Simulated scan of single mutants.
Amino acid sequence: MSRVDVGAVREARAARPERIAHAFAERRRRPLTRGDGRLFIIAADHPARGALGVGGNPLAMADRDDLLERLAIALSRPGVDGVLGTPDIIDDLALLGLLDDKIVVGSMNRGGLRGASFEMDDRFTAYDVPTMTASGIDFAKTLMRIDLADPATADTLEATARAVTQAAAAKLPIMLEPFLSSRVDGAVVNDLSTEAVIHSVAIASGLGASSAYTWMKLPVVEGMERVMAATTLPTLLLGGDNGTSPDETYRSWENALALPGVRGLTVGRTLLYPHDDDVEAAIDIAARLVHP
């Protein structure tokens, strides 16, 4: 039996779009951190960048009914603190009444479409700071891929710095997800070596006129203790879709979560589309790692 009434969402969007604003106005909010001070955020902002694939299924995230069902399961589990998404997904979840007592993270730059010739020119095409503060969004998020051979990176860096400055002025926490990237056979590939991640952290940390509200969103790589030694900024770990076994993935998260400065997980596809398709079990394992 479905946990969500997507038909009601479609009806509201067509006939009563004002209900979205009402849902945000009535949403029960919570402090950013509480208890153990850690966060477990479910990420679902991939589709807006044209990144629909999971594992061997290139269109896994294309079915919105199915995605919302999986998100509903995830948000119902103990230990899940919130969700990260673009306005279309967050608005769907608001209409479904699934955002009460959850941290809502707004994804800002989705213009660097996967596979596009302009992928490094990662325009800010989704949330902006004024809209998030007006709607009561709790957290902002940006993706920042740095290709030293692509001049479009400069525009992305400048736009990201501007977003950090605006977020700090609005006292809105903002997480930066930096990578050193390059094109390999025409595809953008992120360098996940320890040294590359350390360099990306150093570059991202200095963006904007204030770092007071800046967080990092970083991949789990070898030498993670060296990565975390490179910054004092609070950090959430990302999951990705790396094809490793679930046990190996959970073990790497557990080890990284023990490092100073690591404050939790922001994971999407790995948990929403697990190998055995048991979303509830995957979420519960990750929640126990974040909130032991």
Score class of each variant (00 low, 15 high):
Pro151Ile: 01
Ala152Val: 00
Ala154His: 11
Ala154Pro: 00
Asp155Tyr: 12
Thr156Lys: 05
Thr156Gln: 06
Leu157Lys: 05
Glu158Ala: 15
Arg162Tyr: 09
Arg162His: 12
Ala163Tyr: 08
Val164Met: 11
Thr165Asn: 11
Ala170Leu: 07
Ala170Arg: 06
Ile174Met: 08
Ile174Phe: 04
Met175Ser: 15
Leu176His: 05
Pro178Trp: 06
Pro178Tyr: 06
Ser182Tyr: 14
Val184Glu: 14
Ala187Val: 13
Val188Glu: 08
Val189Lys: 12
Asp191Ala: 04
Ser193Arg: 14
Thr194Asp: 05
Ala196Ser: 13
Ala196Asn: 02
Ile198Asp: 01
His199Val: 12
Ser200Asn: 06
Val201Cys: 06
Val201Met: 08
Ala202Val: 14
Ile203Arg: 06
Ile203Asp: 04
Ser205Gly: 10
Leu207Phe: 09
Leu207Thr: 07
Ser211His: 14
Met216Cys: 01
Lys217Ser: 02
Leu218Ile: 03
Pro219Trp: 04
Val220Ile: 14
Val220Asp: 06
Val221Arg: 09
Gly223Leu: 11
Gly223Gln: 11
Val227Gly: 06
Ala229Met: 02
Ala230Gln: 13
Thr232Asp: 15
Leu233Glu: 02
Leu233Pro: 01
Thr235Val: 08
Leu236Gln: 04
Leu237Tyr: 08
Gly240Val: 09
Asp241Phe: 02
Asp241Tyr: 09
Asn242Glu: 13
Ser245Trp: 00
Pro246Ile: 12
Asp247Gly: 10
Asp247Cys: 00
Thr249Glu: 14
Ser252Asn: 11
Glu254Gln: 13
Glu254Asp: 12
Asn255Lys: 15
Leu257Glu: 01
Ala258Asp: 03
Ala258Leu: 10
Pro260Asp: 07
Pro260Ile: 07
Gly261Glu: 06
Val262Asn: 01
Val262Trp: 05
Gly264Trp: 12
Thr266Lys: 04
Gly268Ile: 04
Leu271Val: 13
Leu271Phe: 03
Leu271Gly: 00
Tyr273Ala: 03
Tyr273Thr: 04
Tyr273Gln: 02
Pro274His: 04
His275Lys: 13
Asp276Leu: 08
